[in-house]
Design a protein around this nucleic acid. Structure first.
Lengths: 146, 146
DNA sequence: CATCTTATTGATACCAAGTATCAATAAGAT
DNA sequence: ATCTTATTGATACTTGGTATCAATAAGATG
């Protein structure tokens, strides 16, 4: 449930710019990932895809997931219900929150975390090239309902 | 490479206290996980185990990994080289750093992160029950060598 | 110490997620 | 309208992990 809805035209454009052909299989999958409120696995995306495009092959989905991840359009969610669910990447640097009640993904500003990491780099002499923070719990809505 | 070496006797004791029998297969695996400087997958641990105890079965390793994880003695590393490598859990709340040059695990105080999370909880109305931060990069030694 | 109970083990077969292959298809350049 | 070649879908395969079940061995008991 990204606060900014994803524009799947941009995704198509991104594929085009990178020399990929824009096929119907791709369009189907792009729309699925761009508009899902929930992290989706390749297998789940495959199921959804076949509802509107039954011939869609399994390998095609995995290939497309890889492509979208490499282009930075989707991003892997580790931990909650497996390590291979994907959510749209938002333009800004953000970190993920997954509500374990309703399953929806939400995004938080990660500037404070980046500050923290930079501090830690200075103190420790390490160089940190990748950081992965994911938060799990109950979103404001679900917390209320409980 | 936990700064505090793990005492595998404690792990044996923990198993005993929880009503598990202390078998030779368990001892082998405990020693492997407790003393490895690197995150180990079940498959890797199996390979190592069979060097000193060739009859060790695959399922046994997976069962033991699950047991150790449930008891909180080892902890899963998501992301670097797969999602199913394990490192010893240290007594304190710490977060993980993995050096992508030498592969060794190191631990950082996570108090600052917890403070950050608590702040975020207050502001957003969310309840955060689990947080997973892992940092990847070059440790001080490897950074020097580069 | 000998016996008994039962958790644990290892072998095997299995399952599911993901990958490699390759002939058929369809973008889209010409 | 044709041609080139990226992409596709079907299939077979690999790999990480699980279920089953008879055999083994902790360790409790007498």
């Amino acid at each position: 449930m990204p606060s900014k809805p994803i524009n799947s035209d941009n995704w198509r454009a991104a594929l085009g710019k990178n020399g990929f052909r824009v096929t119907t299989a791709q369009q189907t999958l792009i729309d699925i990932f761009a508009h899902s409120e929930y992290p989706l696995s390749a297998e789940q995306a495959w199921d959804v895809a076949r509802q509107s495009r039954p011939k869609t092959g399994r390998a095609t989905v995995y290939r497309m997931v890889e492509k979208l991840e490499n282009l930075g359009l989707i991003r892997r969610v580790h931990g909650y219900q497996g390590c291979s669910h994907f959510v749209p990447t938002l333009p800004e640097q953000m970190m993920l929150f997954i509500c374990m009640e309703c399953g929806r993904a939400d995004y938080l500003d990660r500037q404070p975390l980046d500050d923290l990491i930079e501090q830690s780099e200075h103190i420790s002499g390490r160089q940190i090239t990748e950081s992965r923070l994911q938060l799990f719990g109950a979103c404001a809505d679900c917390k209320q309902d409980a």
